[in-house]
Design a protein around this nucleic acid. Sequence first.
RNA 1: GUGGGUGUAGCUCAGUUGGCAGAGCACCGGGUUGUGGCCCCGGUUGUCGUGGGUUCAAGUCCCAUCACUCACCCCA
Length: 420
Amino acid sequence: MMQLIRGFRDILPGESAHWQAIEEAARRLFADFGFQEIRIPLLEKTALFARSIGEDTDIVEKEMYTFEDRKGDLITLRPEATASVVRAYIQHKLYAGDPFHKLFTIGPMFRRERPQKGRYRQFYQINAEVFGTDSPLIDAQLVYILMTLLGRLGVSGVQAHVNSLGCPVCRPDFKAALMVFALGRSAALCADCLRRKEKNPLRLLDCKVPSCREAMAQAPEMGTYLCPDCREHFQRFLSALSRLNVPHVPDSRLVRGLDYYTRSTFEIQTHVPGAQNAIAGGGRYDGLVKALGGPDIPATGFAIGLDRLAEIVKKDSQSAPGRPDVFIAALGGKSREKAFEWACRLGEKGIFAEMDFGDRGLKAQMKRAGKLDARYVIIIGESELSTETAVLRDMAAARQEDVPFSLLLGTVIERIGNPH
RNA sequence: GUGGGUGUAGCUCAGUUGGCAGAGCACCGGGUUGUGGCCCCGGUUGUCGUGGGUUCAAGUCCCAUCACUCACCCCA
């Protein structure tokens, strides 16, 4: 049997409704807050991701779908959206005139990781990016938007974890201090952490191995190393969240894996069991626009993992196709042709008319009409053809009447339009 | 990439020390020559994930492989 590629998935009709609900809620919310949609390509030059995400990150080192095209250029299926949005912002000089832009995009990303619950190799994200201000108020607004969206979707028990990663002025000092501290504890660290302390010392802070946690318990905290500007920025971020009554917990262990993050960083976590408890995350990336060849414009944004969110939003009930307004039960070929014509005409008028295309008995067709929960059934067979009169049955009332063909569609439209 | 678990009907799952592949739901037909839901009767549905091996005999034991799943790494 042909099977789909490992780590990829089909979103079947019963589930797609949940996805639509989330996407519609997000679009409405973005409109409410003045965001505009930007649509970006799935493929970019590999160098874009290598430069923005960071050469030494796992994403770039071993998780990207990278290919050579026919010309020999290296291209990559996007592992995240921010790099592309920034590229587009720069390329089309969206900063000219007014650098302030609020953008969102929804679509699939690709990472070649080991599949796991809520994690696929093609996964979907809703991304928001705000360019042109370094205000912590905007960071707070992004968190507020995230919480509002989750609230509108009926997701409860979520918490915003927030932190500040500092800036190019103060972060190097912190990294150095962290490295020195880790060096003193080398004996107690796991193999992964020994590797981390060279490449990405910040990650030492969120290792899950108990012995590492213990060893790092007294590690220096970013908070104490923040420069005055960053310290004030973080305070304003926190107080804005408090003013908005957003439940949030400062979490000095919250670090992000991508190199481009600066200052405010946040993650929305659920209390669901399992390791995949983060459903959205983001933060400020003030240096990225410049690093990718644009002007020195600050920016901030978030990403929501749609796969996990859909899993949470999914109600126990599977969504079903809508109930037909009318089911047309036809007996015999001639009748079926008539039924088919009626079904099409009714559909054109916005009335959902279902019918059976096989050659089945009336009982079977009535059964099907009942199963589909059709409001009315039209019955047409030999005798109806000869008298040019169809039977129109109200299923709930279990009453039926004869209606001349010439009046049938009008009668149905009237009944559906004005029930009773 | 690393480690554990699981693959039997469309779905949820039974299947004994190796001995004719099952149940419920769903689906189809009948009970009513052309009238739904409830009920009753009957029927269909399988590469037992795939490929090899052991055996008189494999869903069952062994090996490999693929997929799913959980955790790690990492991340949304």
